[in-house]
Design a binder for these strands. Sequence first.
DNA 1: CTTGACTCTAGACTTAGATCAAGGGTCTAG
DNA 2: CTAGACCCTTGATCTAAGTCTAGAGTCAAG
Lengths: 140, 140
Amino acid sequence: MNTQISSFTIGAVAKRVGVAIDTIRYYEREGLLPEPLRRASGYRSYGEGTVAQLRFIRRAKDLGFTLDEIRELLALSADRQRGVKAVKQRAQQRLAAIEQRITELQRVRDGLAQLVASCPGHGKPEQCPILRALADEAKS
Amino acid sequence: MNTQISSFTIGAVAKRVGVAIDTIRYYEREGLLPEPLRRASGYRSYGEGTVAQLRFIRRAKDLGFTLDEIRELLALSADRQRGVKAVKQRAQQRLAAIEQRITELQRVRDGLAQLVASCPGHGKPEQCPILRALADEAKS
DNA sequence: CTTGACTCTAGACTTAGATCAAGGGTCTAG
DNA sequence: CTAGACCCTTGATCTAAGTCTAGAGTCAAG
């Protein structure tokens, strides 16, 4: 009972979730959202389910999942057999990728910080450690 | 004296620096490399200076500078007046951006790690904390 | 002198994730 | 009934940093 109590236009959904109308249509084209019901006029008609799914997508994106990965998560979340196991696996993969990225950035940060610290901020360009490091052969 | 002892074809430069030929021509179009001398045949003819500049670009890119920023660094490195000061400033800005990005990623990592840890890896999708976190309202 | 590797230009294509424009139909408040 | 806000589709455009294609010319070894 009551499968469709409320219905929203695409603009109302966009406002509620905080995404652009074009983005919703784009997600539909990309298979991240199901094709919605239509009014007689052709207007898309959405229920709460779509709103929830859009929020799911937005949160997963904030966690760094790509739309491809999110499409897979959505499929898995509907799979009662292997769903949970596979979801956890994907989340672990994402976590590992994020950790690797953090490590890379920390290396870059350390290198850059050292250069910045060793540059007096004035003098001839030939003696600027930053420019020298960029121009010279790698020395390590 | 001796402004041009050695000269290389674009392919030789590409091999020495480890970038694609197309990338060199692309950098030239983008103003990151000066227009090279040409042989009678129209072939580009490069000296050591270009090789060094290409390495500069590659290293700056590894530090996360965009090509736009690198173009600016190259201009600054030729500016004997304000060059060093401005270069240091740009490096500091880059450093700050990297640090901010690291912080963001750490937040994301912590959130995701908690979810992964709290998911048993089996059971019904409705009870998977990862899926629940994605589907439910943000609770904090 | 031929063959295969190399180079030239102009311009199209790629990825990811949207965003925008044009040209038209619809809905609703007054 | 009309103005303004909203919605429809198709297809183009954007960013960044290249990568690739086609069609033509050049170089070096044998």
